[in-house]
Amino acid sequence: MTVPNAEASFGLTEVEAGPAASTPGRGRVVRALLAKPQVVAAAGFLVLLVLLAVLAPVLTAIEGSGPNAFHSGAVDSDLGGMPIGAFGGVSGAHWFGVEPQTGRDIFARIVYGAQVSLTISLATTAVTTVVGVVLGTVAGYFGGVVDTVISRLMDILMAFPALIFMIAILSALPDGNRTLLLICVLSVFGWPYIARVIRGQTMSLRQREFVEAARVSGARLRHQLFAEVLPNLRGTIIVLATMAAPGYIGTEAALSFLGVGVVPPTPSWGQMIAASVNWFTVDPTYFLIPGAFLFLTVMSFIVIGDHAQKVLDGREA
């Protein structure tokens, strides 16, 4: 299980490396998933979030505030910059209220923050999945020295105190392109969790008759891997990717929370929560809104991943 509270182990532990189930048809899986109201709700939220992120410029234009514009009028300078009005200054002009002190619009920062969160987590998911699947299949299929090398590398990476290490590397590196840096650092520590499962499944697939048959009949290596092994891993890969994404969202937020994430003024949910820590007693809206978005996003991914796994395992088709 991927865990957004980055203090816990970073990566997947729950997806079992059991025998790979033959993947059911794509249409049937989607239909089975969409029969679940929870999945529909979760998917609906993620679609909404993607829309918010993509349409951020349009939406903020409608609302009337950019993510970085200061609004002195919306905060009370005599009270240390408390937002004026109930619920952290929620109003027609500021749908989610404003930041204390600066008066920046929270709605605008949430939707632009969604861009950052989604970009980093989805890109990291793509990278770790590709690397994890390639190295996992290679290790599982060829065994021997190749397997030993890759497995030991995974063991070492997983023995690393990932969070502390990521913080250390990120704080040591110059600013540069933070988004890219975050993707790289998250990927380095993320792929073994995917590769480990894929390796196990490939090993068991290798014993199956149809792969065995292809190998004995002298099929090309590429054919063995791409025609026989990979298609049977498709379900597992989808589940692994879905389960990995929320972990990266959570870790990115945690790194931003600790101040080594994206660079200001780029908005980020984790950084918004970090800034709200001192204000939670007098302005709870300030931490509740980014927190709620983070929570719902992570939960939606997990709900979909959970159910996808069940469907693919044939437990609840």
Binding site: V3, P4, N5, A254, F280, P284, G291
Partner: peptide, 22 residues
């Protein structure tokens, strides 16, 4: 479990402090 696994712990910390202390 699903709810709490999705909650980042710094967010839980703020909610708890707000409810139990404030």
């Amino acid at each position: 479990a699903l709810g709490s696994i999705s909650l980042p712990n710094y967010f839980v910390a703020l909610i708890l402090q707000y409810l139990l202390v404030v």
